[in-house]
């Protein structure tokens, strides 16, 4: 009897110890992340002002803003999305519709998943070899292509997943009234999966808006206002990288503010994306 009850106590104790450790783990993890976000808001908000959005990046030791960097980021992101989204949506369409059970789809899915988590600096090197070296100079368009290559796997993945969720009865209904396959895809499947596909695009924007590594040696950076796509262009992440590692206090402050702007953008995009699919699940 006493051995049984001591075994019981031992098991109970071990359970409490392990469960406490799990709570501690959750506490450490969440506190650590809260610490990072707290520091970001505290340091970033200090430099947040109207000037940040209206002034150019300053020379060392001067006041200024991040206008040209923000502009560059927006331009390159827009081009990347315009280039990457159609390719991603089409590839996802093939995998979920025409070639759902083909061998090609299995291979593409595997390779796409690897591209999805491949180091982005490798993509930067690839675009350097592909565009910068032949052209002989860094350019915004090379940066946009590097970002587009990061957009594609995200969009492929979500498009395929969302089209796979569309019930086959809908497609059969479309086919039964004589619509050809592509009309069924365009007017039935795309429409049913629209919010999911938009989510994928938003997530891909969230992903590339903070990417630094692929821009370092494609778009490089630019201290001045430039809207020439064939020339180096500033971007928010690369500017943050350069300013944060500088010894000048004004630059470091701008780096923190830029970091806050990027984080808020990314979080807002992710939340909007999630609420789109969330509503879908409720239906």
């Amino acid at each position: 009897m006493s051995t049984a009850s001591s075994l019981h106590t031992r098991r109970k104790t071990r359970n409490s110890v392990m469960m406490t450790l799990c709570v501690v783990a959750a506490g450490i993890g969440l506190a650590w992340l809260a610490l990072i976000l707290g520091a970001l808001v505290y340091k970033g908000a200090a430099g947040l002002s109207f000037d940040v959005f209206t002034q150019m990046t300053p020379p060392p030791g001067d006041a200024g803003g991040l206008l040209n960097a923000i502009y560059g980021s927006v331009v390159m992101t827009v081009i990347a999305v315009i280039v990457g989204t159609p390719i991603g949506v089409l590839a996802g369409t093939y995998m979920a519709e025409y070639g759902r059970f083909s061998k090609l789809t299995t291979v593409v899915r595997f390779i796409n998943d690897i591209l999805l988590s491949a180091p982005s600096i490798i993509i930067g090197l690839f675009v350097y070899e592909l565009m910068v070296r032949p052209m002989g100079h860094f350019s915004a368009i090379a940066g946009a292509v590097a970002l587009a290559i990061l957009v594609i796997p995200v969009v492929v993945r979500t498009t395929e997943d969302m089209l796979n969720l569309v019930p086959n009865a809908l497609r059969e209904a479309g086919t039964a009234i004589g619509a050809p396959r592509w009309v069924v895809i365009k007017s039935v499947a795309y429409r049913a999966a629209l919010s999911g596909i938009v989510t994928g695009i938003l997530l891909s924007i969230a992903r590339i808006s903070g990417e630094t590594a692929p821009l370092l040696f494609t778009a490089l950076n630019n201290q001045f206002w430039s809207s020439n796509l064939n020339a180096p262009m500033a971007s928010l992440p690369v500017t943050i990288f350069q300013f944060a590692l500088s010894p000048y206090e004004e630059w470091q402050q701008l780096a923190w503010t830029g970091a806050l702007i990027i984080t808020l953008t990314v979080l807002a995009l992710s939340i909007v994306a999630r609420s789109l699919t969330g509503r879908r699940e409720d239906k």
Binding site: L33, L35, I36, A39, L40, K43, L203, A206, R207, S209, G210, E211, T212, P237, I240, F241, A244, L245, Q252, A255, W256, A259, I262, T263, V266, L267, S270, I271
Partner: peptide
């Protein structure tokens, strides 16, 4: 899941200054 999406440069700048 949201934290998985925060760009790595944010972690870098926090690591360097904090």
């Amino acid at each position: 899941e949201l934290l998985a999406g925060i760009p790595s440069i944010i972690y870098g700048i926090w690591g360097l200054f904090v």
